[in-house]
């Protein structure tokens, strides 16, 4: 039972970050492999402004999110757009975002040093009892936030005009441009939002493990896995994928040891991809001739 609750909470963390993969995939059919570094970027920016005592914690979070959003939009414009020009088989953007990840990781390490730094911003201390399992408040906050963010995104995509544009772009970017909307601009905005979410995740996560350059790496793997399991084209996908992945890996590591937990999670990805390449909630894209 403990493992189940902890797995769900952990799944929440992955689901929150997975949302940034899903967002960019829905609108641009690309993934940013440097998301892990945006997690760290957010955490360190917030750390840098932690001393601004006049700014409430929410404001500090906002600074971190904004910086990551701007860098994210620029990354899309200059490192993704030039490398996705040759149709759906063109995956050079994948290599360029990996390269970006190297550069950012290296830069952050050189500037901040490799060891974790304590982050107090937006930090809840203590634990609460959930169905008999002790869960740290911070982790619970992240999991709850994952649900809130997902619901907000779903509502926004259904009810707002920006959401309408996003759905239109995901279905047919060319026709969207005939409606006076630039798909490239939509992509930049989406990247900004997605990297903002990554930065938010990073800040809240840093409050539990400290801010370090490599803090995003384990999250990256798990959240790609979660996004793929849930379905890269579904906003609800991360919650389902996160729950499955989190519970499976937590229960497995509880029973057989930590190493098998992650292995089981990643094997889940392979099983799901074989069975449903589009993910559990994903929409199958028709093959056009």
């Amino acid at each position: 039972m403990d493992a189940l609750v902890l797995g769900l909470v952990l799944g929440g963390l992955y689901a929150l970050l997975a949302q940034s993969f899903v967002l960019t995939f829905i609108t641009t059919k690309t993934l940013n492999f440097a998301v892990g570094e945006f997690v760290a970027l957010g955490a360190f920016v917030v750390l840098a402004v932690a001393g601004w005592s006049w700014l409430p914690d929410v404001g500090k979070l906002a600074v971190g999110v904004l910086v990551a959003a701007v860098v994210g939009a620029a990354a899309y414009r200059f490192l993704v757009v030039p490398f996705m020009t040759e149709g759906e088989h063109d995956v050079r953007w994948l290599l360029s975002t990996v390269a970006l990840s190297f550069v950012m990781l290296n830069l952050i390490t050189n500037v901040e040093g490799p060891s974790p730094q304590r982050s107090e911003t937006a930090r809840l201390s203590g634990a609460v009892d959930v169905l008999g399992a002790g869960v740290s408040k911070q982790q619970l906050l992240i999991a709850v936030l994952a649900v809130v963010v997902t619901v907000l995104l779903v509502v926004a995509s259904k009810k707002t005009s920006a959401g309408l544009v996003m759905r239109a772009v995901s279905q047919d970017p060319e026709t969207t441009s005939l409606m006076g909307v630039s798909p490239r601009l939509v992509g930049m905005v989406t990247y900004a939002v997605a990297m903002g979410i990554a930065a938010l995740t990073g800040t809240l996560y840093a409050a539990t493990v400290g801010a370090s350059p490599v803090m995003g790496a384990p999250l990256l793997v798990a959240s790609i896995a979660v996004a793929v399991v849930g379905g890269l084209s579904s906003l609800w996908g991360p919650l389902l994928g996160g729950a499955l992945y989190g519970v499976l890996s937590e229960v497995t590591s509880y029973e057989f040891g930590a190493i098998w937990g992650e292995t089981a999670g990643l094997l889940l990805v392979i099983v799901v991809l074989v069975w449903r390449p589009q993910g559990l909630l994903g929409r199958r894209t028709e093959v056009k001739l």
Binding site: R167, A168, V181
Partner: peptide, 12 residues
Amino acid sequence: FPQLTVGENIEM
């Protein structure tokens, strides 16, 4: 847009 409603298409 195949998955949008008639109204949403016109809104676009």
